[in-house]
Write a protein that binds this DNA or RNA. Structure first.
Lengths: 343, 343
DNA sequence: CTGAAAGCGCTTACAG
DNA sequence: CTGAAAGCGCTTACAG
């Protein structure tokens, strides 16, 4: 980082070269006030010649604003997130804002830490993507952080997270996790299934809870329902799948996300169970690879990109947050080939 | 964004409350100079009471540094990218830096635009992830941008990109795209295939070129080789697959990435070709879903996460860039079930 | 339409 | 170990 690196040009350099004041340079930079064509011309030329690039920090400091939008995601390698993030970025870009995507790896400490960094940078919008951790201590700290953002007039958007009772000013964009799961399970019941195994997500996550809740609701009258908890990873789905397959009477397995469903599918194949002839399997999310699994996976589609775009627009201040503080998005059952009539 | 939002506490507030100078506050904040325990105690308490959070912009301006690392990626929804980015983030986090992930959507204009934004924020490291666009005008502009970063002492890392002749100070972390493809094709030749179709990536992308080059090298002596260009998407793989399947004599299809291979696989299924009995198919990348395709996909594994971690460490200044300006990573053939003996 | 000057919130020599 | 003061590079009333 040391050495004879050349100093970057500043407004003063530009002003001097153009023979104007720094105020005028600022005006052409920001188009914040009328400037005569000739002067503008001179300034623009000086900017080009000096390869001047405004110092974003100085600007943010002086103007007490920044065009940064923070985006907190759990794990980008989970196919659930990228489409949401792509939607966000699409919108922030068109607003000329910079989306700061931070990966927390699902670690609550990191989440708080990243929020703090975003606060330092005076991000004027934050989007929390993906499920919340249902854990009191963490929630309290999180609410405190979000409260600070809101106090400064920043927008807070929860994308794929339930609203936070203590922080009503935060807009929540939610997926119909419960309803989607209900429809999925009802689809299985329609096919004659009465003994269904469920691979849930980790209990402390809100998304996992909502989906599991849907399963409980829909599976109420079943002869048999068995829940095993996974961790949203393919491996945990595989392990849970093996365990459920030990219960000989189970005819269908529903997983709380596609990754675990893929694992369960692999477990079924390893155990030589024919899907869907002998066993039905379903996932949740309709992530990219679902149509390519063996056989193609029945799942529930979530409007991920749309949710991200909405979140992006609200965070940028382009869309007004709904008065209700909440936007509920749907969930659509996608029947492919892993679910079939029970024999 | 307006309203009666409370002013954030500043060093002055903290200093006043603690009964010290702002210089001292700064010292305990940065641990940049010894401070007596009692004074430190008082300052820390004031910070806590006022919920003080340092203004990152002011700090960056005063100290003429920032802890931002820019990460430019094409398309996060392409499974090629997330693992690299996760590797980067892992390392930047442990360095206490903030990785600014920017999605360019593969659009060269946006790439330049994002670089400019990063320059504004005085990012002290930039990582360009994924293939370069082999297009003169864009390359010239890109080189200019990167040159500016380097002039300011920032580190530039190319991850999964070839070195840039005009910018030798940029460290390039490269995958063995050519060698990996050669081994993959040789594997098919070993299985008796003599008429192989190749679904290439878009010609202007460096990664596409390198892999296609590998195909050309290895397929030199074949009775038949046919190249169709896709766009790295599943859909384009499907279309190209259909086209190749019209050539009745072709016994194997190799795609330049897994997504297109998945598309080709689906096309084969749609055409009722049995894989691998009647047709072999292979991809490139070993992205997450490869083990779940029908049948599991033969492909080439790239050390994505490792590459990202390396890039992250170099960009953070934790690792010294290699003198050669280049780190070449391997590529490993992963034989699954889509490739088999030709009948 | 344009400029002089203050101020944004920090850090960093420089003194002591 | 601590403080007074200058300076980082902008923007923004305030005058004109």
């Amino acid at each position: 980082m040391r050495g004879d690196h050349s100093r970057a040009a500043t407004v003063v350099d530009v002003a001097t070269r153009a023979g104007v004041s720094t105020a005028t340079v600022s005006r052409v930079l920001n188009q914040s006030a009328p400037v005569s064509p000739e002067v503008r011309e001179r300034v623009e030329q000086a900017i080009a010649e000096l390869r001047y690039v405004v110092n974003g920090h100085a600007r943010a400091l002086a103007a007490a604003t920044s065009d940064l939008i923070g985006v907190l995601v759990g794990d980008l390698t989970d196919p659930f997130f990228p489409h949401i993030v792509a939607g966000v970025q699409e919108e922030t870009m068109t607003s000329g804002q910079l989306a700061l995507v931070c990966g927390t790896g699902g670690d609550p400490h990191r989440e708080i830490e990243q929020l703090e960094q975003l606060r330092r940078l005076r991000a004027h919008g934050v989007i929390l993507v993906g499920g919340a951790l249902r854990e009191a201590a963490h929630q309290a700290e999180l609410n405190r952080q979000l409260g600070e953002f809101l106090r400064r007039g920043a927008r807070v958007v929860l994308c794929g997270r339930p609203p936070i009772p203590g922080v009503p000013e935060a807009t929540a964009i939610t997926f119909d996790n419960t309803g989607g799961t209900v429809r999925l399970v009802e689809h299985l019941i329609d096919l004659g299934h009465r003994r269904i195994g469920y691979i849930a997500g980790p209990a402390p996550r809100s998304i996992a809870w909502e989906r599991r809740h849907g399963f409980r609701l829909a599976a109420k009258g079943l002869a048999r329902r068995l829940i095993i908890e996974g961790s949203f990873t393919r491996e945990s789905g595989y392990a849970a799948g093996l365990e459920l397959l030990r219960q000989e009477d189970i005819t269908a397995i529903v997983a709380a996300n596609d990754l675990m469903a893929a694992g369960a599918l692999a477990a079924a194949t390893a155990q030589r169970r024919r899907v869907p002839a002998q066993l039905s399997v379903a996932g949740f999310g309709d992530t990219q690879f679902c149509q390519d699994t063996n056989p193609p996976l029945t799942t529930v589609r979530l409007p991920l990109r749309e949710a991200g775009a909405l979140a992006g627009r609200i965070a940028c201040g382009r869309d007004t947050p709904p008065a209700a503080g909440r936007i509920a998005l749907g969930a659509e059952l996608v029947v492919r080939e892993t679910t079939g009539r029970v024999r």
